[in-house]
Simulated scan of single mutants.
Amino acid sequence: MEEKLCYVCSPYRGDVARNVKYAQELTGRAVRRGLVPITPHLYITQALDDRNPEERALGMEAGLHLLEPCECIMIGGRYGISEGMRYEIERAHKMGKNFSFADCGKLNGKDEGFLREMSRYPDMEERKQEFIHLLSFVERDGVQKLLEWLESTDFYTAPASTKYHGAYAGGLLEHSLNVFRRLVKRCPAADMDTLTIAALLHDVCKIHLYEKTEDGYRHNEQFPIGHGEKSVILILRHMPLTDEEITAISWHMGAFDSRAGAGRSLSQAWEKCPLALHLHLADMEATWFDEKRGPQE
């Protein structure tokens, strides 16, 4: 067994007996393919009343939390794409999950078009334009100067690591956007300019850090001044930062930072600047839940 988690998405409402039988069939198919299936509507509906709008909403939200750690979503289309399935599929698309289709050969035009759109992911240029658009909304002197600097570097094409998450061209850009979405979700009431700066720029330390090899990437550090603190220094060359932004970006590696074992610096940073902890957690969520891992390049 591959031990890859797979979220099973199929209808429940309507002909419940038929749909439960179908969900069981899809779950069995996933197991036989070596996957570890998660089929929330087979068991959450045993504890909550799907006919009650409030309990249905609770069940849907609980199920979507189970989607986060899954590598792929299996979409069972034998009986069409229900409203609940659409919601799950849209969330899976936003999380960047891989799609697996079962019995989708006879969908109507509307459902087929929806799945085609959801299974298409932004290319590098689209992600670049999204990044520029988000950062351009920040009201801070130096933003345009910083964007011009980024354009002169390999930021938009660099990998996020040598062999782990985002170990492919454009991985750093993709990771930065994923961290932004995660951080905004974690801190909905925080200042949007600060969230945008902290999330989108926390890893600029990786600019010109990786060198392409025949079988992947390797480190080629030209400015060995640390990790988070390096990002802070590079940003400050072009744009001012608040103390909160400096602290969050500097400590976004959390306990993985080599400074963390020396005294209480990390604990003090998290105590005085909750954003530092939230940025670290958003970074981990993006790495483990949203991005491809392993030597897939």
Rank of each mutant, 00 (worst) to 15 (best):
R218C: 14
E139T: 14
G226P: 02
F180D: 01
L195A: 12
D141L: 13
L183D: 03
H202L: 00
S176D: 02
R181T: 10
W149P: 09
E151S: 13
I207E: 03
P159W: 12
F180Y: 09
I207Q: 07
L146V: 03
E174S: 08
N220S: 14
A158V: 11
Y156C: 06
M192W: 07
E151W: 11
P188S: 05
V184E: 15
V184W: 04
L195D: 06
E174A: 12
H175V: 04
S152F: 01
Y210F: 15
E211A: 13
L201S: 02
K145V: 14
Q144N: 15
A167Q: 02
Y168A: 03
K163A: 08
E211D: 11
E148D: 15
P224I: 13
W149D: 13
E174L: 09
F155R: 02
L173A: 04
T157S: 15
E139I: 12
L147E: 11
F223L: 11
E139R: 15
L200N: 09
L173S: 05
T153L: 08
V179A: 06
A198K: 05
Y164R: 12
T196H: 03
E221L: 07
R140I: 00
Y164H: 10
G216N: 05
A199W: 06
Q144C: 13
E151F: 09
C205A: 09
I207G: 00
T194S: 13
T196E: 01
G228R: 08
G216T: 03
Y210M: 13
P159D: 10
S152W: 05
T157P: 11
L172Q: 10
V204F: 04
L183V: 06
Y156W: 08
S161K: 01
T153R: 10
I207Y: 00
G216A: 04
N178W: 10
H202Y: 08
E229R: 11
E139S: 14
G171S: 10
R140M: 08
K206M: 12
D191Y: 00
Y217M: 07
Y156I: 01
L150H: 03
G170S: 14
K212N: 06
D141T: 05
S161C: 14
V138T: 10
L195T: 12
A189N: 05
E214A: 08
G228A: 05
G226T: 11
N178P: 04
Y168G: 08
K145A: 14
C205E: 07
I225D: 12
N220W: 08
L173W: 03
L201A: 00
Y217C: 02
M192H: 02
C205P: 03
H227M: 05
L146R: 05
S176K: 05
D141N: 14
H227Q: 11
E229V: 07
G216R: 00
C205V: 03
G228E: 04
E174F: 05
E151A: 15
H202C: 01
L200E: 09
K185S: 07
M192E: 09
K212H: 07
K163C: 07
L147M: 15
W149L: 12
K145E: 15
D154P: 12
R181N: 15
Q222M: 12
H165P: 04
C187W: 10
H208G: 06
H227F: 08
